[in-house]
Simulated scan of single mutants.
Amino acid sequence: MDWYTGNTAYDTVLTIAFGFAAFVLVGGLFAQSPYGRFATTKIGFNLNPKLGWLLMEIPATVVFAVFYLSGPNRFEPTSVVLALIWLLHYGNRGWFFPLSIRQVPGKRGSFNVSVLGMGMFVTALHGYLNGAFFSHDYKHQYDTGWLTDPRFLVGVVVYLCGFILLVRSEAIVRNLRDKDNPGATEYRIPYGFGFRFVTSPAYLGELIAWAGFALLTWSLAGVVILLITAGNLVPRAFATHRWYREKFADYPTDRKALIPFVM
């Protein structure tokens, strides 16, 4: 089956997205995106974490809604199910996560404006590629039979496993800070659940979730976001692991960086 859909605009954006994924994969080998513990003030100005995350993720929801609702198949059962899976992810990532951050009072070093611009570009791409694909069904694959296809069923299970790992890991990190006094301590060693095995279980969960998403949608749009996520999070996971081991003398020696028992 040809990779392209036959829709010139969609195929052009998809090509751009793959080019950007290649850029992220290569760039991640040389430097970490300047946010969180790797933030910098060298480029532009900084925003507080809540505002930075919220602004960065908003395009995903808005762009997805615009292009999904403009498609002829927007009310078809399979398209609706795929849209609900999308909304599950971005309801958490785009709204709950940023609004629930327990930030250190007055801190503005976590979100460089360069990261914000790059993130908005990625989430807008992602929103368009999936919103348009689901509701236009360019490949004519999303009839009701898709909901019982093994690729969809296995993909849903993989996605939900990753999503649960992601959400639970983020909750553990969030609860390391007292909600009434988030500035009491900035960084502590997290324990429990995925942290028993790896330093970055949230990153692992995100990667598993997008792998499942690529499978359950059986689309190149899903492959693109998996590649971009891997290019950003895999090297960041190793950098985070080194950071914890250097900062905390009592950091668990048997904990791997990203993949349990492996690396």
Rank of each mutant, 00 (worst) to 15 (best):
N7K: 03
L153F: 09
L84H: 11
E206I: 00
L129Q: 01
I172N: 04
L153Q: 14
E57F: 05
F248V: 15
E76D: 01
D180P: 02
L233S: 05
L116K: 02
F111E: 01
D178W: 03
Y191E: 05
S70G: 11
S70R: 13
F193I: 08
Y191Q: 09
F193Q: 06
D254S: 03
G28V: 05
G44E: 06
K179V: 06
A214S: 07
G94C: 07
G71H: 01
E57H: 00
I101G: 00
W3L: 14
L160E: 05
V158R: 11
V115M: 13
D149K: 12
V167F: 04
R196F: 04
T78I: 05
V63C: 04
S33N: 13
I164D: 10
S169A: 15
T123A: 02
V156T: 12
D254H: 08
V173Q: 12
N48F: 03
P150C: 12
L99R: 13
Y203L: 05
I85R: 09
F18R: 10
Q141W: 09
Y90P: 01
T78R: 04
D180I: 02
I16V: 13
P98A: 11
L165V: 07
G222H: 01
R37H: 09
T8E: 07
P150Y: 09
A184Q: 15
V115N: 12
Y159F: 14
L125S: 01
T144F: 02
L147A: 14
F30S: 05
V26F: 14
A221N: 02
G205F: 09
Y4G: 03
A22S: 15
G162Q: 08
H89F: 09
S169D: 10
S135K: 11
L220M: 11
I208W: 15
T41I: 14
A39H: 04
V223C: 15
H140N: 14
A17K: 04
H241V: 00
P150I: 13
D149W: 14
W243N: 04
K139L: 11
L69R: 12
N130P: 11
L84M: 15
